[in-house]
Design a protein around this nucleic acid. Structure first.
Lengths: 84, 84, 84, 84
DNA sequence: GTTGATCTTATTTCTC
DNA sequence: GAGAAATAAGATCAAC
């Protein structure tokens, strides 16, 4: 424990900044998560079926992931061809 | 399902906008999540113990939650006193 | 799916026992959950504000979590000192 | 706040007991939840597909709920017949 | 009867 | 990769 006190002021300051940076980012993330909830609430109030809405968004996300995966595979092939 | 084709253009547009709004928010959130990862990576590269770092941040989060919870209890009590 | 029919009697029996074991545990859990509800109901009938009660219990839980988290951090630091 | 101190010793004791009772029940519940996790872990170690296992258990639970629902409906009919 | 709160489950992420 | 932790999702229940 006595050893622990021997970190320099600079390091302490760096540590403090790192912690605060992460906490700020986490706060921003939480805020956006709240925004998402709000949008779903509005959609529900408008008459949309939020469960279906969530499914649509999940599907579109899978689609994007799939397309990116295919792009990666294509890149790999193209790279392989270039290397032949 | 046949009814589903009878939604107005306005509603369709509203739906499309809602979906895109949520997807944009989710993308922002994912970006921040990536930023958090990056900060941890930098911290690790600098020599910080990320496990301890995460623990400290978790503890500080618990602290905040506890303070907020206490405030909520206080509010409940004050409200109760006003109602007595 | 054709393979699924090839599981041995022993394995089937083991599966059956596992399922029943979990279901028994879940039933016990549900029973206790009902007990908790009952205690809250009695408390309400007695005149306690269940909202405040829940808040107090949540706060005490946070307290416990925070103490445990601190112990974990201490362990991490002590371990780190031992490794220096 | 001064009013808050005017609750009788008996009430305070009752409150204390209620809180401890709930906390004990919650602790029991958490213990059983841990047992459930352990059983799933063992099942996984044994080679069972825990995701499928969970589905089976969910299905059986739905079945039970359905059967109970049918029993209730039957009771309602029988009661109605008796009342005719 | 519908929102809001709470609890639980499921998926994803992180650490070792 | 296995086990633990965080996040998201869904279900449930109470209160207005």
């Amino acid at each position: 424990m006595t050893e622990a006190t021997h970190i320099s002021e600079t390091t302490k300051e760096k540590l403090r900044q790192t912690i605060e940076h992460i906490e700020r980012l986490e706060a921003d993330k939480a805020e956006i998560a709240q925004d998402v909830k709000d949008v779903y609430s509005e959609a529900k109030a408008f008459g949309f079926d939020t469960k279906a809405l969530r499914q649509v968004i999940r599907l579109r996300k899978l689609d994007r992931a799939e397309r990116e995966e295919m792009d990666m595979i294509l890149d790999t092939y193209l790279l392989a061809l270039g290397e032949i």
